[in-house]
Computed example of a mutant assay.
Amino acid sequence: MTHNRIAVIGLHEHEYEYIRQHYEGLMIWHQSIPKIKIIDGILYVEKAQGVGMLPVDKVIYHGIFEDDLDFISGLALWNGPCFPNAYGMLECRLKIPCLIKAMKYSKFNSQRGFISADTYINTNSELVAKWGNWHCGENKHKFTGSWESTENSVLEPYFEGEAVRILNIGEKSWQIKLEGETWLKSIHPDNAQFTEIDTELLQDTLMLKDKIGMDVIANDYIVQKDGTKHLLEINHIPNITRFEEVRLHFLETVVDWIHED
């Protein structure tokens, strides 16, 4: 039996070791972004040790790095087997363009505004400014009254309500109640937990997954007390280690994908 050479990029050592134990073929593992080249349709990836590059048949990528957009673009240009799909990751790597695309399709596409860097705004309503391409509650500011932006930012109303995430990997989905001591909610606090899946939010998430062409997706929503729902953002590389059930399903999905012809 011929085995492919697999490049595992971005995953931590525990996740890599799980994959290593379930695949007998050749593997290259990089926790950060390696150098690559594409020649005559063949992807070459930097060796994990030593000098030089090796041809790779499949890529598993799971990480968010400051300078990874060009790397993901390279994977998309290669057009070879990549999990998650490089095109889907490319569509969602930049948060503002991804949000704009999602608003075109989502049932819960609340009106947004925009403000350039070094620009003043004066508002009587509570707004949230979001900028950059990081997650986990960073690069967000809630304000009322006068505020001067430091970055090009999306503006959205502040929605009071329950923050939830719909996470889908392969054929399995979860709803997670996001928590936090402030208005900023995330998956990381100890009291974040699985909750019953909202059918409408799941349908919206799976529709966006299909429209954008993603293999893994996690959508964050706010559900207000009156039942009104708002899409906040799409996560193309969601956290998979916070819950062991999610971690194992992700790794099992990856291993199954590796063994596909």
Rank of each mutant, 00 (worst) to 15 (best):
I237T: 12
E148I: 11
Y120L: 13
I169M: 07
H3P: 00
Y120K: 12
G145L: 14
T253P: 02
L184Y: 10
S149F: 01
Y221R: 04
Q224A: 15
V59A: 03
W183T: 08
K35F: 10
N139D: 15
D67I: 08
D215T: 10
E160S: 06
Y221D: 00
P189T: 00
F65Y: 14
S186W: 02
E244W: 04
E46T: 00
L11T: 03
H14L: 13
I115N: 10
D190S: 07
Q111S: 13
E200V: 06
K47R: 13
H12W: 14
T182W: 11
P97F: 15
L201Q: 06
M27K: 12
G145C: 13
N133P: 11
I9V: 14
Y87R: 08
T199Y: 12
E162A: 11
H141W: 05
T241W: 05
V51I: 15
E200R: 06
S73W: 03
N124P: 06
P97N: 06
A86K: 09
N85F: 03
E244M: 09
K185C: 02
D215N: 15
W183G: 02
K107L: 12
E245S: 08
D40I: 00
V164F: 08
A218L: 12
I234F: 08
V8G: 07
L248A: 09
D256W: 06
R20V: 01
E15Q: 12
K95V: 09
S32G: 15
S173N: 04
K35A: 06
N139K: 15
E162M: 12
N191P: 03
G74T: 01
A163Y: 10
V223L: 05
A102R: 03
E126Y: 03
I42C: 10
